[in-house]
Design a binder for these strands. Sequence first.
DNA 1: ACATTATGCAACCTCCTTGTTGCATTTAAT
DNA 2: ATTAAATGCAACAAGGAGGTTGCATAATGT
Lengths: 119, 119
Amino acid sequence: MSKTEHNPAYGEHDRDFSVMFAALGDPTRLAIFDRLADGKPRSISVLSDDADMTRQAVTKHLRVLETAGLVQSHKVGRESQYAFCPEQLAEARAYLDQVAGRWESALMRLKTFVEGDQD
Amino acid sequence: MSKTEHNPAYGEHDRDFSVMFAALGDPTRLAIFDRLADGKPRSISVLSDDADMTRQAVTKHLRVLETAGLVQSHKVGRESQYAFCPEQLAEARAYLDQVAGRWESALMRLKTFVEGDQD
DNA sequence: ACATTATGCAACCTCCTTGTTGCATTTAAT
DNA sequence: ATTAAATGCAACAAGGAGGTTGCATAATGT
């Protein structure tokens, strides 16, 4: 699996979804992402308040989420507000739907084959 | 965010989806998962053949996927076959749909509020 | 002006992840 | 019976992830 040339991980669509999944693959980050899904942007301080870790740790998590394109930040005054970003989520959903679809049709083919076998 | 008591990451549904996302959050594992979506079970050797890493590494990845419930294994003869497992995928999709839904309705509420403001 | 709040940066630590290698074991093939 | 194939287990190493602390800086509040 040479990540340089044709990596089956990228399948038909040439994207690395593993980056996004990795971003969601940490409970703290998933909690932040989940929380921001109400659309309200929040500052780092606010997001750190009820976290049982330092503000710096939360900052790092937010950067990971932002790199993955799951949230966006913009500075307003002295604070940086982080907001939900739906595009990547949509792509993740589309990808999982596609995988599920492939599996479904594989099932169908098998079913048809077996039924045809009985006739 | 004490993982022991009420962690916002688990939201309304008390599951830790971050485990599943973490499993998909590695390019090699995502590639394997993607590949198995055609429904055909494959042995470790087969899955290792076109991977640019050792069989042991692939074995570890498969165990991670299995722990996350994304694949299932069963021994047949001397080899262990790994097969796609759709349930967890369905749950992941449902979760992401729910998050997207929350964001959508937040958008709607905002839109209604703004429109009502103009009247 | 001065204190406070919100953040950024950098160094550091620890542990888990990812990958390796070597050897043992079980099963199949000849 | 021997050989080859498929796997499991354990020890190991390197690097990255997740977290901390200390200090510097920019923007607000009084």
